[in-house]
Nucleic acid binder design. Structure first.
Lengths: 214, 214
DNA sequence: AATGCTTACGATCAACGTAACCATG
DNA sequence: CATGGTTACGTTGATCGTAAGCATT
């Protein structure tokens, strides 16, 4: 008996699901945490909560090794597929302008202080999209075109520009050397450096995860 | 040039995405809010934040009417599909026992206080799954088999049992009359009523959304 | 005037980090 | 004894509700 009422979904907590998906793909909370820019403890907590909600154990916890249960094995590819589909759709979302500029933001910086709308308003040809949290991985893997980070200057092969005047650790705009001077990135860099100081990037430090395999 | 490194996804904030999907399906923040058990303001905020992240306007805000932009129209079916896939996979996840009992929980009750693990331990044949937040809709639509709610007793066609002794508004276990006496639900009800009082359902009230269309 | 979206503000709760712990190889 | 998962606990921040405002019919 199908239902006339808007057939809605029963979805588990989506962030917990994301933690599970990453952990299952890596068969490791540690590596999943690295990917998600959180700590291993956080991943473990999310997965545990998910299992409690579903009433199903998804991992066998061996010693320093995760193994998917039968349920987990059946679940993983479906969930990956769902996320992949969402990711694909998002990637294909046409930006407002002709060019899409993907900006990664390191840590938990309150984006409202950046007034990205001002940049967008004065650069209609650039579609600015934000990925947060993001780190060097995302830049290396090409998931973002440019990265705002704190205290991460000077990487070989990357152009790093300070975008705040303050003393001590500063905020850097990091772009691959090959593309660092293309118009979109130049425009954004110039715009950032021209920001009034009180708006300057108060990147709050949130997490430092040790480097995993380089 | 495809990448050897673990091909990870770029996902927008998933909760905001869920808000968008519901809003787009209903073409209404109000109805979406009803579905998601939050207020219309919350939905609007989430959608706005999503648009800001993506750099794409998804809705045209007319007067008391939402219209999807071209981008929103292209986005919606893909996102719905992704969520649907996740929901389907979750529905097919085999419970531990032979029987699956879907429990809806009204409001934001801290599930840890219920020690559902104790119930599971003593009822291995029942796979207990939790949906939260949930309300009468979910019960009516059959998305949950039984509902724990506060101050919502006495509904025609439903069996309502008080499961706490305290005075004033109490916590109710609500099940459709047709299935209220099947073994799973009976077991759960009995178990609930036998709980020590200090564990009794301290359902925190979180939201009261006015009834929409009956 | 009633309705539905918006915004500002404060409150609340989920998510997270830290640190200590445990088990195993 | 180094490593990776677990747990407890306190903190932070994302999320939400309230209430006031706005525009349109």
């Amino acid at each position: 008996m199908t239902n006339w009422t808007a057939m809605t979904y029963i979805l588990p907590p989506l962030n917990a699901l994301r933690a599970f998906e990453a952990a299952a793909r890596h068969l490791s909370f540690k590596l999943a945490a690295h990917e998600l820019h959180v700590t291993p403890a956080a991943v473990g907590q999310q997965v545990k909560a998910l299992e409690a909600r579903l009433g199903v154990r998804l991992f066998e916890r061996l010693h320093k090794q995760l193994v998917l249960t039968a349920a987990g094995q059946a679940y993983l590819p479906e969930i990956s597929d769902g996320f992949r589909r969402i990711a694909d759709a998002t990637a294909q979302l046409k930006p407002v302008g002709a060019v899409l500029l993907q900006l990664g933001v390191h840590g938990s910086f309150d984006l409202r202080r950046l007034e990205l709308e001002a940049f967008r308003a004065s650069h209609a040809e650039i579609g600015l999209r934000v990925l947060q949290p993001a780190g060097l991985h995302e830049l290396i893997e090409g998931k973002v075109d440019v990265l705002i980070a704190r205290g991460l200057g000077n990487h070989p092969g990357y152009r790093c520009d300070r975008v705040t005047e303050g003393s001590g650790l500063g905020d850097w705009l990091i772009a691959p050397a090959g593309t660092a001077d293309c118009p979109e990135i130049s425009s954004f860099r110039d715009w950032l450096r021209a920001l009034p100081v009180e708006n300057s990037l108060a990147l709050h430090r949130r997490r430092v995860v040790g480097i995993v395999r380089s």
